[in-house]
Design a protein around this nucleic acid. Structure first.
Lengths: 115, 115
DNA sequence: AAGAATGTTAGGCATATACCTAAGTAACTC
DNA sequence: GAGTTACTTAGGTATATGCCTAACATTCTT
């Protein structure tokens, strides 16, 4: 039973997939500074707007950003908790591995003492 | 000039792309427990071995794992530092966003004081 | 040496991704 | 109300991804 704290496999798929593109990472970097319109976000990129919009949609489908359209402008902002969920997935295995290395370190140290 | 500590864009592309698949995340989870052969890693999956091997190669190309073939067995292990690099990319923007929120919180608080 | 175990290569198929241009639609601005 | 702005939809192309089967190579076991 997946919930907001432990994303299901599809959420991780979409989240990491969304981060696997420089344009989309750029958007995230920009939104970390504060909300922005689609046009603002698109400005730095030499890309047709429909192509850019697709990136915005991928980010939104992944839950990494949210958007609202007001008048003719669509405003976008970061959903940091989803970013945090991805972060935590990675950190969990990093931690497991480091714990293993620590334990290995201890074993080697102990053996060293007895030599 | 990209280096091992600050992965270039392609490294991030490949890294996050590699994590965007449940099978590959499963491999990472398994390798966090310790090294394993390709056959060991493949065992839980209902997938033809060549298909599975491709996942192993994607992980290796992303630098998330390393492998060595000894006799007829290819042994795989986790490269935690690459995992850490991805972790840190995310954590950086999460932090930027949270700092912003903190500042916003302070502003709201300050305004509250003067009301 | 024969057979089993462990990959690996080659080739093919279906779907997804990343881009494009052209042609809308809706909301401001004058 | 005519033009401009800010998206949006539709449709198309090229490449990448994830899977498969069949066949091959190498190494270990007996």
């Amino acid at each position: 039973m997946p919930n907001i704290l432990s994303p299901d496999s599809n959420a991780l798929d979409r989240g990491f997939q969304a981060l696997a593109d420089a344009t989309r990472r750029g958007v995230i970097a920009r939104l970390a500074q504060g909300e922005a319109s689609v046009a603002d976000l698109a400005a730095p990129y030499d890309m047709a707007l429909p192509s850019f919009l697709q990136h915005v949609r991928v980010l939104e489908a992944a839950g990494l950003i949210s958007t609202v359209k007001t008048g003719r402008v669509r405003t976008c902002w970061l959903e940091a908790q989803r970013l945090a969920a991805l972060d935590q997935w990675i950190a969990g295995y990093e931690a497991a591995w480091n714990t293993r290395l620590d334990r290995l370190g201890q074993i080697l140290e102990t053996k060293g003492d007895t030599q």
